[in-house]
Amino acid sequence: MSPVVKWWSRLAAMVTGAVLTLVVPVHAWAASNGVADVAIEAAKARRRRGGFGFFGIFGGLCCLFVVAAIVLVIVLVSRNRKRK
């Protein structure tokens, strides 16, 4: 197998694992405690109000920080593997 295919398959497995690790428990939690109703009401209120507001910007920055942290961890782990 070529190095590109190995790299791509490892990356795909890592992303899939991270997504399943984060999404499945959050979805189960949200479905079990009535958060879905609150989310629907919040979405309706947001459409009436319009715009992103403070929490939209804060949510976007939070998402960027989480993605940056994941990328940083991946880079650090891959560097440590090459040194051995």
Results as ranks from 00 to 15, higher is better:
Gly53Met: 06
Ile57Asp: 07
Ala43His: 07
Val23Ala: 15
Ile70Thr: 04
Gly51Tyr: 13
Gly50Ser: 13
Arg49Gly: 03
Arg49Cys: 12
Ala30Gln: 10
Met1Ser: 13
Arg10Val: 11
Thr16Arg: 10
Val67Asn: 06
Pro3Ser: 08
Leu61Pro: 01
Ile57Val: 15
Asn33Met: 10
Ser32Asp: 08
Val38Glu: 05
Met14Ser: 08
Leu61Glu: 10
Gly56Trp: 02
Ala28Leu: 15
Ala39Ile: 04
Ile40Trp: 02
Lys6Cys: 01
Val73Glu: 07
Val71Asn: 04
Leu22Trp: 13
Ala13Lys: 12
Trp29Lys: 12
Ala69Arg: 09
Leu76Thr: 01
Val71Phe: 06
Thr16Glu: 10
Phe52Met: 14
Ile57Ser: 10
Trp8Glu: 08
Val15Ala: 12
Gly17Gln: 08
Phe65Ile: 10
Arg46Met: 05
Val19Leu: 04
Pro3Val: 05
Ile70Asp: 02
Gly50Tyr: 09
Val75Arg: 09
Val24Asn: 00
Cys63Tyr: 08
Val67Glu: 01
Lys82Cys: 02
Lys6Glu: 14
Arg79Tyr: 01
Val67Ile: 15
Phe55Ala: 14
Val15Gly: 03
Leu76Glu: 09
Trp7Cys: 02
Phe58Ala: 15
Gly51His: 13
Ala42Cys: 05
Gly34Arg: 14
Phe55Lys: 13
Val66Lys: 01
Pro25His: 11
Ala13Asn: 08
Pro3Asp: 14
Val66Tyr: 04
Gly59Pro: 01
Val75Leu: 04
Lys6Thr: 14
Arg47Pro: 00
Val5Thr: 09
Phe54Leu: 15
Ala68His: 01
Gly34Asn: 06
Asp37Lys: 12
Val24Ile: 15
Ser32Pro: 02
Cys63Ala: 15
Trp8Ala: 15
Ile40Asp: 04
Ile74Pro: 00
Ala39Asn: 02
Ser78Lys: 02
Ala68Glu: 01
Met1Gln: 02
Val26Trp: 06
Leu72Pro: 00
Ala18Cys: 05
Val38Thr: 08
Phe52Gly: 14
Trp8Val: 13
Arg79Pro: 00
Thr16Ser: 12
Met14Cys: 06
Asp37Trp: 05
Ala31Gln: 12
Gly59Phe: 04
Arg48Asn: 02
Glu41Phe: 09
Val35Trp: 10
Asn33Ser: 11
Lys44Gln: 11
Asn33Asp: 12
Gly59Lys: 08
Glu41Asn: 13
Gly50Cys: 07
Met1Lys: 03
Val38Ala: 13
Ser78Gln: 14
Ala36Gly: 06
Val75Cys: 07
Phe52Lys: 13
Ala31Gly: 10
Arg10Asp: 14
Val5Ala: 14
Gly56Pro: 00
Ala36Asn: 09
Ala39Arg: 02
Val19Asn: 00
Gly50Lys: 15
